[in-house]
Design a protein around this nucleic acid. Structure first.
Lengths: 245, 245
DNA sequence: GAGTGGTCTAGACCACGTG
DNA sequence: ACGTGGTCTAGACCACTCT
């Protein structure tokens, strides 16, 4: 593990443990540098991690402040329903309801960086959390990964993990659009709610390590089952609000 | 402007302009360093900005890749409805429907870091976008800022800006919980939708520069009016999914 | 093996905040 | 005025990717 990661971990643990309660000041860079016997730059790199996580706030000239004490989750836990469920102590389940190929629509072609009309694989999955149905996933896979997806067990718990083990595919970047929609007839039937009741919708496009788009998906969560949480600041921010489309 | 900010700006403009299309490689650090006549560390700092914005992906040993070309918005545009509206070319409106003081609930006291039962100011606002009602804000202000809030014009367009001009208050950090809920009777009446129809709910707590909580709010957007957008990666991520509460 | 990004150091100077 | 964080430099070495 890199030196700055170790220091960041120590500081994060100390904050979570309550050694630095919310609202108090963190030690100075000079003090941390001598405590960990590292150069100032390394300490700054460590603190930058905590700032990016939203745990610590920073302003030039003033001591750094503790803003929060919850551990934020990793990309993997955001991307993979199963990995997220495991990390919060729940059991994920899944079942493929439909899987077929068809030509891509123009908007899918743009998102997957393929030529319009090129064939794609559409998979509809119902995902459960501790047995309760909470999520309908309608995922569109680019043609080059479709064969690997079709070979997966329909009841496969973690698609992400299986694809990694099967073909070494690593998901690395994601873009997510979040809004609310009314449940359609199929959504309502699958999730056990009334038609027109509120669902939290997450449309996402995921890209491999090499920057190649792999899939785009329309995921709909039953209201009350999942909440997205974002921390941001004047200096670190990855959230955008957009006009309806 | 700092040197690295200038370099980051040049690179961002070049990406947006299409000089570096999505999926292509960025120049190497050495090349950028000589082009901008800066040290490698400074170039790295510049590129780190773009990585945090989700515009560029990076892996050790491989050239950096362009992932996106949309400018991401600032904290101010996330926090302030009026500033966001202006930045996307729309006109924001607002009207205070109710404003009264009452003792804080235990959960409000925790979020605002005050003692339970201490008085707070509750303000209900209806916000419009180009004349259309799109958002009901129910905001709870800590006692120490309440007098300044009560002095504001009820039809005030930007609360954030007015509070800055009146008392120099700067909002700097935010935590946001996003989910979907059904419209209650009051929500439905104000937003002009049916009861039970889907709303996008954003619960937020905002903190001043000094790390002092200022307000917490329950904001409900009419479905279709607003979408939240997040970019994340294995190395930079500020979004968390949480189990329902 | 050559190229490229990731980590770390050591020191200098500047900008801001606080007392 | 002093303490603190922000910026910048220059150079070294390592880890990984690509061909």
């Amino acid at each position: 593990m890199a030196r700055y990661e170790h220091i960041a971990g120590e500081l994060r643990d100390a904050i979570i443990r309550g050694d630095h309660p919310i609202g108090t000041q963190l030690p100075t860079e000079a003090e941390l540098a001598s405590r960990f016997n590292a150069a100032r730059g390394t300490v700054r790199q460590a603190v930058a991690v905590l700032v990016a996580e939203g745990l610590v706030g920073t302003r030039q000239g003033a001591r750094r402040i503790v803003l929060g004490s919850e551990r934020s989750q990793s990309f993997a836990e955001l991307h993979s329903f199963a990995q997220w469920a495991r990390s919060v102590g729940h059991q994920a389940g899944g079942l493929v309801l439909d899987s077929h190929r068809r030509p891509s629509t123009p908007s899918e072609a743009v998102r997957l960086a393929i030529t319009p009309g090129e064939e794609v694989l559409v998979v509809v999955r119902l995902r459960r959390l501790d047995g309760e149905p909470v999520l309908v996933e309608r995922t569109v896979y680019a043609n080059w990964i479709a064969p690997a997806v079709e070979k997966l067990d329909p009841a496969c718990e973690s698609v992400t993990q299986e694809l990694y083990e099967a073909v070494g595919l690593v998901f690395a970047y994601g873009e997510h659009l979040i809004d609310a929609v009314a449940a359609g007839a199929e959504d309502a039937r699958l999730l056990g709610v009334r038609r027109g009741s509120p669902l939290l919708r997450q449309r996402r496009t995921t890209t491999s390590q090499e920057g190649r788009p792999v899939e785009c998906s329309d995921d709909r969560y039953r209201a009350g089952s999942v909440t997205f949480s974002i921390r941001n600041s004047t200096t670190a921010n990855s959230l955008v609000r957009r006009a309806g489309d």
